[in-house]
Simulated scan of single mutants.
Amino acid sequence: MSVEILDGATIVHFLEDEEAFNSSVGNQFARLDTNKDGLLSYDEMLKELRSRGRP
């Protein structure tokens, strides 16, 4: 497990950088959408949560 620390200014800057934000969200969505149907199913989300150590 990795630990990352972000301060408020870093988060605000990221959210204001529309290209970086959209790219990040798009990449994350594509990674989670394992069947590539353009939707995140319950099973796809559950798999991600479990991989992060959540029940």
Rank of each mutant, 00 (worst) to 15 (best):
G38I: 04
E16T: 09
L6W: 12
F21R: 15
F21I: 01
R54S: 02
G8Q: 04
I5H: 09
S2H: 10
M1I: 12
D7K: 11
H13W: 02
L32S: 04
Y42S: 02
L6I: 04
A20C: 07
V12C: 03
G8L: 09
F14Q: 11
G8Y: 11
V3A: 05
M45F: 13
L32A: 12
E16P: 00
Q28A: 11
T34S: 13
D7Y: 11
E19I: 12
R50V: 14
E48D: 07
S41D: 13
E4D: 12
L32C: 05
N27A: 07
E48C: 05
D17W: 07
F14T: 08
D37F: 01
A20V: 13
S24I: 02
E44G: 02
V12R: 15
Q28Y: 10
H13K: 12
E48H: 08
S2A: 13
S51I: 01
R50Q: 15
G26D: 06
F29L: 03
R50S: 10
Y42G: 00
E18S: 12
E4S: 13
G26E: 08
G26M: 04
S41Y: 13
I11H: 02
R31Y: 09
L46Y: 05
G26W: 04
D33Y: 00
S41F: 11
N35A: 06
S23H: 11
E19P: 01
Q28V: 13
T10L: 07
N35D: 15
N27H: 08
F14G: 01
V3N: 08
Y42A: 02
I5W: 09
E19K: 14
E19C: 03
E16W: 09
I5G: 00
G8H: 05
V25P: 02
K47W: 01
G8W: 06
E44W: 01
M1P: 10
R52P: 00
I5M: 09
M1Q: 10
L39R: 14
V3T: 10
N35I: 08
D37E: 02
A30L: 15
D37H: 00
D7G: 06
M45A: 07
V25G: 01
D17C: 09
D17E: 11
E19F: 04
K36Q: 15
L46F: 07
L32K: 02
T10M: 14
L40V: 14
G26I: 04
A20L: 15
D37I: 00
I5A: 08
E44K: 00
V25Q: 04
D17A: 11
E44C: 02
I5C: 07
D17M: 03
E44P: 05
R54N: 08
R54P: 00
D17F: 05
R54T: 01
I11L: 15
E18M: 05
A20S: 14
R31N: 11
L49P: 00
G38H: 07
N35F: 08
N35E: 10
G53H: 03
F21Y: 14
E19Y: 04
A20F: 06
G38R: 02
D43K: 14
L49G: 04
G38L: 05
E44M: 01
L40P: 08
N22Q: 15
M45R: 03
D43A: 15
T34A: 13
L6D: 07
G8E: 06
D43S: 14
